[in-house]
Amino acid sequence: MLLTLLAATAFGLVRVRNLFAVVMLAGVYSLLSAGLFTVMDAVDVAFTEAAVGAGISTVLFLGALALCGTRESKPVHTPILPLFVVCLTGIALVYGTMDMPPFGDASNPVHHHVADHYLEESEHEIGIPNVVTSVLASYRGYDTMGETTVVFAAAVGVMILLARGRRRTREDAPGEGSASPPTGGRSTRETPR
């Protein structure tokens, strides 16, 4: 059921030309994925997906839409070559999964490397019930620290990119003002002064 809705949303995403609708559909898609993760008992992942995918990133997309307008321009190329590339990649990926162990099999290697130890011992060694948290923050603490640093580095990158644009527009403001794209109708963020 959820998968059907997910597929329908994805199809709608591709077909719709109004970018505002696309952003909303992307949020719906994230929310449906979160539901799917919940069904598969991955509540931590579902939580993250709902908060980031359906929440913050929708807001950021809206912010981007306010800058670049809400109509998608018509594609200039015929879709034949991209379709061919996508089909080829899809076939290659499906072929790659042939060697994978059967989905959901309890004897798969991924379930017996360190997972057994974590599931059985984390109650003693860490003393907290949520195994996801104990793996994330304690057993794999270095990894999480690296991730935090990556998030920080990504923000620094965004700041450098966007803040540079700001300085340039301020320097030659008269020329830039007319050349900049018109803001879309749904610019909720533009506060009147």
Partner: peptide
Amino acid sequence: LFAGRGRR
């Protein structure tokens, strides 16, 4: 950064 850009 995103929200502030539109008001340039």
